[in-house]
Design a protein around this nucleic acid. Structure first.
Length: 703
DNA sequence: CTTAGGG
DNA sequence: CCCTAAG
């Protein structure tokens, strides 16, 4: 039922089958199931919306036949349904409760030819008349892990010769097929993701019901029918089953990564919006979002949605690290939380069949036996109400480009609401925030090699997006379109407008398009002027106020202020699941915040007194209010300071640090290295003395 | 969580 | 800055 429901979601007239994955550990756990599924549904909605657009583009460029795609999908759905009748055909759960690094997909196909018919109660005649193929394909794991491509095939009983016999993919572990003669046997497979988050499963409707009649002739069909080969975006080290002919499959997948969660700060409680934030909290918030599949990335960081207009007010809260009693330690924040789970859903859409075989390396050498070995499910069409037979044959001559899109990113949102706010209002707030971002509509951008492909009229081939090309560098991104669309909404909300104002569509392409740009990460709030200082490190408590000014009294980091808005315009990006991409998705690098001289001074002073082994203390002492400076940051800074001090001035970069400070750094470093940091000068009457600090002797201070 | 180091 | 191994 759930599955059906999911499947029923359609976009652009297409119905897309979805097979979620679930971590094994969580499977069968009743409690989770429901919520998970719900969320999946939601996810699917979003996915559908996105995919729809994507497909539109795909269609134009690929000249796909929508009708066909639909039909096939329908068929596929039917297949699923049928399996459901079976009662155990497809079992998939996708649980995101927590960190599931691994997930699996289980497909129990109980039957084999006759049995299948029986259980399904499919009239013999019907079953004979038409069968379809269904295949479940797991995307290759980017990490070069073996990827199993599994195709389940239920063949007609007519397959006397056994040609139809299903063969396991090479390397597929649990293959227990029956070969003899007739039928495909069902297979229950578990595909485990080897801990690789990026893995996805694809349930594809592989076969083009091109010719029902033909399909019924299983033997022949198996050999010649179009098999569908899922060509993942990434190179697949392991060859997959392939049939002589390939269909054009577009896989749209979503991936959820727990790394992308909402960060919600209750301002008054200073819950730190940090990694350690309560997952429960995130989850709750995420649930409010329409989709959990959308990634929430820190794009809106440092920005504030103006309360006016939208009633949405979210601040970027610097990661507030609570020291001492203020700490709010989320109990469920294992240190490894970053790994989390990765769930991915992939749906396949057959746009059209290719009459040409694609010479894709992974497939080479496989064709021969694969055509027979691939276990494909031939389903009786009669069962479904979808007219399988009316499919038009696919005639495309072009090699097909098959893409798999994993996860669409959504800017991370920071929401701030008073503690006294009701849950309901919180929900609304979140909804509004999301709506504000997504409501304006989305566009899809295509990135190749990190560069945006702007010419919509170019063919994929011309653009270098070919099956033979390196698709690793192909990325998609969702771009808010409201900026351009000049939707009323956007105008009313300056904060939202800002991000798009530049109409710059930056993306998080794996290549790090943005990264080296020198843009300091976003801050929407940079109203033309003064507020720039907000981004300057301040030793004061961060106040959710734009008027807050750096105590530094200096506009030191003003450069960091530049071009901030552009960053915010960063589009929601869809990136291929390559390892690199994966990485980038997991963690967005914090915005770079060069230490100001005053900070350096404070750091030096603190280290002089505390030594180099007590960064937490240093942090509390000198940067307690600098929420964005963690003790690790300080430690790192000290490290670089020492290095800087030891190199020639000409080699130093960045804002010059006064030599005297560097001298102190060197001095303190030398001292503390000699004194093992912690054994502060107990009884040491060190002659060594740090010049400033009012001439105080540091040595005894901390004792 | 903190430290300490490597990347 | 990030990530991790060790406390």
């Amino acid at each position: 039922m759930v599955l059906k429901k999911r499947l029923d979601y359609g976009f652009n007239g297409y119905q897309v089958p979805v097979i979620p994955r679930a971590p094994r550990s969580l499977r069968r756990r009743g409690p989770y199931k429901k919520s998970v599924e719900d969320s999946q549904i939601c996810a699917f909605e979003l996915l559908a919306a996105v995919a729809g657009k994507l497909l539109q583009e795909s269609e134009s460029s690929a000249s796909s036949n929508a009708a066909e795609g639909k039909a096939q999908l329908d068929i596929h759905l039917d297949g699923i349904k049928k399996e459901q009748l079976e009662g155990k055909a497809v079992r998939s759960e996708c649980l995101d409760q927590g960190s599931c690094i691994e997930s699996e997909f289980v497909h129990d196909l109980a039957a084999q030819g006759q049995n299948l018919k029986t259980t399904l109660k499919i009239p013999q005649a019907e079953s004979d008349s038409a069968f379809e193929h269904a295949s479940i394909v797991t995307g290759p794991d980017i990490s070069k892990k073996v990827c199993y491509d599994l195709k389940l095939e239920i063949s007609d009983s007519k397959n006397a010769d056994g040609t139809v016999a299903r063969k396991p993919e090479e390397g597929f572990p649990a293959d227990r097929g029956s070969h003899g003669g007739n039928l495909e046997n069902g297979t229950a497979r578990q595909l485990e993701s080897l801990g690789l988050p990026t893995r996805n499963l694809t349930l594809a409707n592989t076969n083009s019901p091109k010719d029902p009649m033909k399909l019924s002739r299983n033997t022949h069909m198996l050999i010649n029918s179009e098999g569908s080969v899922q060509l993942p975006l990434y190179r697949d080290p392991v060859p997959k089953a392939s049939l002589p002919r390939h269909r054009n499959d577009v896989n749209l997948g979503t991936r959820d990564d727990d790394e992308n969660y909402f960060r919600c700060n209750l301002s008054s409680t200073k819950i730190r919006a940090f990694r350690s934030q309560s997952r429960i909290g995130y989850r709750r918030i995420r649930k409010m979002l329409t989709s959990r599949y959308w990634k929430v990335a820190p794009k809106l960081r440092d920005c504030e949605f103006s309360n006016t207009g939208r009633g949405v007010k979210s601040y970027y809260r610097n990661r507030k690290i609570m020291y001492k009693r203020e700490r709010c330690q989320p109990k469920e924040a294992p240190s490894k939380r970053r790994k989390l789970y990765d769930r991915s859903l992939t749906v396949a859409y057959d746009q059209e069949a290719s009459s040409e075989s694609i010479s894709n390396s992974p497939e080479k050498g496989l064709k021969g036996d694969k055509s027979q070995s691939a276990a494909s499910l031939h389903r009786a069409t009669g069962l479904t109400n979808s007219g399988i037979g009316h499919k038009a044959p696919f005639q495309s001559k072009d090699p097909q480009v098959k893409l798999s899109i994993k996860s669409f990113r959504v800017p991370e949102l920071y929401i701030e609401v008073p503690e006294t706010a009701t849950v309901g209002s919180l929900k609304r707030t979140v909804v509004e925030a999301v709506t504000a971002i997504l409501g304006g509509g989305l566009r899809v951008g295509v990135l190749l090699q990190g560069k945006k492909v702007r010419d919509d009229n170019r063919t994929l081939r011309q653009s270098g997006i070919s099956q033979s090309g390196d698709l690793d560098n192909l990325g998609f991104m969702l771009e808010p379109s409201f900026a351009q669309a000049s939707s009323p909404v956007s105008h009313k909300d300056p904060s939202l407008l800002l991000p798009c104002s530049g109409n710059q569509q930056l993306s998080r392409s794996p290549t790090g398009l943005v990264t080296g740009s020198g843009f300091s990460n976003s801050s929407l709030d940079a109203p033309p002027t003064n507020n720039l200082d907000n981004h300057v490190e301040v030793n004061h408590e961060i106040v959710p106020s734009h008027t807050d000014v750096s105590t530094d009294g200096r506009v030191s980091d003003s450069k960091a202020l530049v071009a901030i808005s552009a960053m915010n315009a960063e589009a929601l990006a869809v990136v291929p699941m390559s390892q690199k991409a994966k990485r980038s998705e997991l963690a967005q690098r914090r915005t770079r915040r060069p230490f100001s001289v005053s900070e350096v001074e404070a750091l030096v002073e603190a280290v002089e007194k505390l030594g180099t082994g007590r960064w937490r203390d240093v942090k509390m002492r000198a940067f307690d209010d600098a929420n964005h400076r963690t003790y690790v940051d300080l430690k790192d800074k000290w490290k670089t300071l020492v290095h800087t001090a030891s190199i020639a001035p000409q080699q130093r970069r960045g804002e010059p640090v006064p030599q005297d400070l560097l001298d102190r750094v060197l001095c303190a470093h030398a001292y503390w290295s000699q004194h093992q940091s912690k054994q502060h000068g107990k009884h040491l009457s060190e002659p060594l003395k740090f010049s400033d600090s009012g001439g105080e002797s540091w040595s005894l201070k901390e004792v």
